[in-house]
């Protein structure tokens, strides 16, 4: 399998050609917006990575493995779900945390539970955007409908890991 950077740049190049053939000014606008988004995220991402690095050094990987390792099963999945659901941040913090967890001894189904809970419940997003735009009644229905999702996702991940011999 080719390197993921090559694939991503391939897709980016292809889409860039598509946009440029349609409209040059849109192409320039898109480039500008990509660079500005990058600039706006990079400082926070760097700080988050440094923070995650320190935290990784402070929490021994055996502890992480003990809490949410592959062999912890449902207990670890439940813990990872709670942990992920209480993350008050966007991807620039959540993903460095996930990298740290993976480099320690966290199990794949547990990480899937963490990420699913974080993406579905994301309470910073719920509070800042969702309630104000969609209203709390709709949001409460959505959250109630989503309660079991991290468990289902990690159960599927667990099954895939069993079949593929991953952990």
């Amino acid at each position: 399998m080719p390197d993921s950077a090559v694939i991503l740049w391939g897709i980016a190049g292809l889409l860039g050609v598509l946009v440029a053939r349609r409209d040059r000014t849109k192409f320039v606008e898109a480039l500008r917006s990509a660079v500005l988004t990058l600039i706006s995220i990079l400082p926070r991402l760097c700080v988050a990575m440094i923070l995650a690095g320190f935290v990784a050094k402070l929490i021994p990987s055996e502890t992480i493995g003990h809490l949410i390792g592959y062999d912890t099963g449902w207990r670890g999945i439940a813990l990872a779900t709670l942990f992920g659901g209480s993350m008050p941040s966007g991807p620039m913090v959540a993903f460095p945390v996930v990298v740290v967890l993976r480099n320690a001894e966290a199990g794949l189904p547990q990480i899937v539970a963490f990420l699913t809970a974080w993406s579905v419940f994301a309470w910073h997003r719920v509070l800042t955007y969702e309630i104000s735009i969609l209203g709390w009644q709709f949001v409460s229905v959505r959250l109630m409908s989503s309660l079991v999702l991290p468990l289902i996702a990690s159960a599927i991940a667990f099954a895939i890991c069993q079949v593929m011999g991953l952990r």
């Binding site: 950077a5 946009v19 917006s33």
Partner: peptide, 17 residues
């Protein structure tokens, strides 16, 4: 960094398309 940059570009182009 290189993957991240490509990801940002893809997102920006797709928003135009």
């Amino acid at each position: 960094a290189p993957r991240f940059g490509a990801g940002m570009l893809i997102a920006a182009f797709l928003q135009k398309l």
